[in-house]
Amino acid sequence: MRMPRALVENSHIDVSTGQITMRRSHPWINNFNEWVISACRCNMDIKFIWTGSDAKALVYYIADYVTKSSLAFYDMFALAQRGIKSIEQQQATCGTESAIEKSRKLVLRCYNTIASHQEVSGVQVASYLMNYGDHYTTHTFRNIFLISIENYLQAEIMKVRLSEKDIDEEESDELSIPSHEDQEDEAKETEEQFILEPTKTKSGHSYVMVNTRLDYQHRSKDLTALWLYEFISLFHKKVIDKSDRRLLANAKASDGERLSIEGTKMNERHTFASLHPQSSSHTLIKHTNPVVPVLLGPQIPRREREDTRERYCRALLTLFVPWRSVGDLCAL
C-alpha cells in the first residue's frame, strides 16, 4: 500500500480472510513497534505476516532485494560499449598487436569500466579497510574428500582378495578397476589427495605426505570408538609446542594415547600412533567449538545401482562407523 495510506480507527481482524489490519491515525506514518524503534533508533515499517500470500510476497521481496545488481543491464551495456570504443581508438594508432593481446585488453578495459561505476556502501568500505571477512557464518567448516578415502579402501579390498584367491591377470584387472573409473579423467578426480607437511624425526627435519585418512587411522587408542565424521568435527592436528612437551614429559607412554591435562585449562589432547608420519612433531587437539565437515569431490556411488550398491554402503560406513583398516568395515 503506497502513501498516503488509509486511516483505520481500530485494529481488527477480517474473519473471512484472516487479514490483520492495525490502527492507523496518520496517513504518512508506517507501522511501527515502539520498543523496537526506541532500541534501533531508525525508520521502520513492521508488518505481521499472517496469510500465505503475505509470506510469499515477503520471500519474493527479500530474494529480489539481496540479489539485485547495483547496475542495470542497460547501464552495463553502455559502459561496455564505451570500453570497446576506447579500445578501437587505441588500436587505430597501434595495429601491430596480436589477436590474443587485443582480446585481453578488450576484456580488461570493459571490466575496469564497469567496475569503476559499481556502487560501494560505507559498510563494504569499512570492512575492507578493517581487513574483515567478506562473509559471516555461525559455524566453522572443514572439507573432507570422501570419495578418495573410499577408493583407497576399495584398493585395499582388492589387494586382500587377490592375495587370498588365485585369480588370473585378466580377472584381477577387472576387479581392481571399478566400472565407473575406466576413464582416465575420472580416475584423476577420485585419486587420493596428500599434503606435503614438515615433521621432526631423530635425523632432523623432513617433509612427509599426509592427509585426513592417515590422521584418522593412526589416532590414539582412546579415540578408537570415534567415527570419521565425528573425528573431523571434534579434533584437528597441531604442531607440538612447549606446553605439549611438558605434557609428553609427564606421560608414561606417548604412543597413541590421551595426554593428561588435569590441573590445566588446555583442550583435550592425544598423541598419534608411532606409524603416523608426524607422530613425533604433531598432536591431536579437541576443537573448542565443533566444526562441520563438508563433503567435496564427485558424488558417492549411487544406492539404487546394483554395480555400485556395495561401494555406496561402504562409503557411508566409512563416515559413520569407527575403523582403522578396511577389515573393520566389511568382510574380506
Rank of each mutant, 00 (worst) to 15 (best):
E34G: 05
T67R: 13
V291L: 04
N131R: 14
E310Q: 13
T21M: 07
R246Y: 06
R24H: 02
D45S: 15
N33V: 08
R246V: 06
L58H: 06
R24N: 01
G263T: 09
K165P: 02
M3W: 10
G83V: 01
W50L: 12
L58S: 05
T21E: 01
H282N: 11
S70W: 02
Y60H: 12
Y128E: 03
N10M: 09
V210C: 05
L106R: 13
L79F: 05
E97A: 14
D45V: 08
A251F: 05
D328K: 07
V15Q: 10
S220H: 02
V66F: 01
S38Y: 09
G297K: 03
N267A: 12
N10I: 13
D166I: 11
K159W: 01
H287W: 12
Y152W: 11
E119K: 13
L247E: 04
I232D: 02
A315L: 10
V292H: 07
T318L: 12
H139M: 06
R303G: 00
Y152V: 14
Q217Y: 03
A80C: 09
D14C: 14
I157A: 08
R324Y: 06
D241N: 14
R314I: 15
S11D: 08
N250I: 04
S172V: 04
I261P: 04
T113G: 00
S116E: 07
Y74E: 15
Q278H: 04
K47I: 00
A6S: 11
P198A: 03
Q124K: 15
Q91D: 13
E189F: 12
E101N: 06
I62M: 05
H139V: 11
L228F: 14
S148M: 02
E191Y: 11
E181F: 02
C42G: 02
E306A: 15
V326C: 12
M158K: 04
Q154H: 14
L316P: 03
Y312E: 04
K68T: 12
S16I: 06
V15F: 09
Y61R: 13
S16N: 09
D215C: 13
K85H: 12
R41P: 01
R246S: 10
R104I: 14
T308L: 01
F194W: 13
K221Q: 09
L71Q: 04
P298H: 01
Y312W: 15
S98T: 14
P277K: 00
L248M: 08
T264Y: 08
I49L: 15
R245T: 05
R213L: 15
S325W: 03
R309C: 02
F48V: 14
S70V: 11
L108S: 12
A315M: 11
Q217E: 09
E170V: 11
A253C: 10
G327M: 11
A80E: 05
Y65W: 10
F32I: 11
